[in-house]
Each structure stands twice: as C-alpha cells, then as structure tokens.
Amino acid sequence: MSSATMVRGDAGARAARRAAVIFLAPGLVLITLTFLLPSIAALGLSLTDFDIYAVASPGNTRFIWLRNYAELARTPMFWISLRNTLYFVLAGGPISVLVSLAVAVMLDSELVRWRGFFRTVYFAPVVTTLVAVAVVWKYLYDPRYGLLNAGLHAIGLPPVDWLGSTAWAMPSIILMTVWKGFGYNMIIFMAGLQAVPGDLYDAARVDGAGAWQRFWHVTLPTLAPTFLFVSITTMIGFLQLFSEPYVMTQGGPLHATLSIGLYMFTEGFESWHVGMGAAIAFVLFGLTLIGALVQLRLRPKGTEGGA
C-alpha cells in the first residue's frame, strides 16, 4: 500500500484534506444518493407494507417488522424462484467456471499458435448485448425451425423442446449463459496461469510428474486465489439472473425459469408491492453474502497469503 508521503506541516495536511474532499465529493455524493441511501432505504421499505395504496397516499403505509419476510417464507412462488436461482447458480456457475478454466489452460499451452485470434473470438460473446443474444438464442432454440434441433436431427437425435418444457428451460438458459460468459473468466484464468512460476514445473518434472499430475499438483494450487475470485464474482453475477428469463421465457414454462431477480421485478415493478419487492431484494443480498462467506471459508489453505 503506497500512501501519500507528503512531508508538510499542519497547513499542508489541512490543504490535502480539503483537496481530498473536493475530489471525493462528487463521486461519493452520487454513489450515496443513487446507491447507498437507496439500499438503506430498501431495508426500511422491506419492513413496511408500502404498495399502490401508499403511492396514492403515503399515510397508507404501515411498519410491519418482518412480516414481508414471513410472508415470503410461506409463498410457494418465492421458494420456486429460490430453487430456480440456486439451480442456475449451483449448476450453471461451476459449469461456466470449469469451461473457462479448461479453455484457458488449452490457450495457455505453448503449442498454441494464433493465440490472440482465438482469445478475441472466445471473448466476442462476452461484449455482446445480453438482450440481443437472448433474442438470437430464442430462435436457435425454436423447436421446429431452430438450428439446435436441426443439428440434433442431423446426428440422429430426437428434437428437444428447449424453452418450452419445464425440464429443459433452465438448462437452455444455462447453456446460453455459459456460451456468452466463458470468455470473461477465461481471461482472468489466463492471467492467473501466467503467474505460475516456471521453476515449479521444472521441479515437478524432475520428480517425474506427468502432465496431468503437474496440472493437479502445481497449476491448480497456484490458481487457488484466482479460483476464489472467479467463483465469487461468478456467483454474484449468476445470482442476479434477470434479463435471460425476462426476454426468453418470461419466467415460464410453469415458472420453471422464474428467478429471484425476476420475481423481485414482478412483485416490485409490476404489482407494486414495494415492501415485498424490497424484501426479496434483501434476500438476494443475503444470499450473495452467505455465498461469498461460504466460499471464503472453504478456500484452501495458503490462499489468504495471496489476497
């Protein structure tokens, strides 16, 4: 941590403090106004029954303690959205991270030529607009005219009702998400792989370790901090699932792709059960925190040294 090393008197320190305020104020005021205060207000709102009656006249608001949360706990739709979200995070997240890792390891091999080209191509889906590619994939998934079923047909497999069946809808969304996102974590893994010291490989080689053993015993342990970072950020992103089901399935069929993010949107911005919507958002926040803490707790020994 480098910090300012201004050797100055009291007046200098005061000037520095004043300058700091000037530089920090606009940004921090904006963040406070548009993010911090609203987040705190959301906590307050989640303890009220703020709804359309309250929008019409603020007097129609009651402080109801944790009743929204209790109400959520007995609402089947909430549990459905929670289950779907966890399905997406716990199945989609690891798949996405592993695909990224596998591709990064392949690209990192010194046998690879045109590395830059491959990297650009793999990364292209990452920068695309989610709404646009969701629209594109919706057509790829079309049971009759979609390319995916045409491909299945070509290799002799029966067609799949990708977005139309409760069993396949979520896997379909996961497939698209992995396609769109794997390039992102791939880049981070590639950076991490570069940090693996070469002499460790030499030592392992001298000990007679094969390629797989070297990967398992040298590469992976060194990647542990990267892994932790990637899995936490991926989890945070995946927990917020919203646009994909909004565009592709609207939460259907039979709520099979209703995520917490989408449920919060419908409760908050469609039914204007604002208090309830805020409570759902806080459940999402809670899940994020729990998920991050669990992963930090589960990290392998020696990781903290890197962080």
Partner: peptide
C-alpha cells in the same frame, strides 16, 4: 467501505431509487 458496495446487488437500490 465503498468496496463493500460491490457485494450489494443493484436490485436492492432499485425500488427506492425509482421512488426518489
């Protein structure tokens, strides 16, 4: 403290922000 903000999903602030 500011960095902790990265753990707060943007959805949390949305409803109050809309009302603001």
């Amino acid at each position: 403290l500011v960095l902790l903000g990265l753990f707060i999903p943007p959805q949390v602030a949305m409803l109050p922000l809309f009302i603001l």
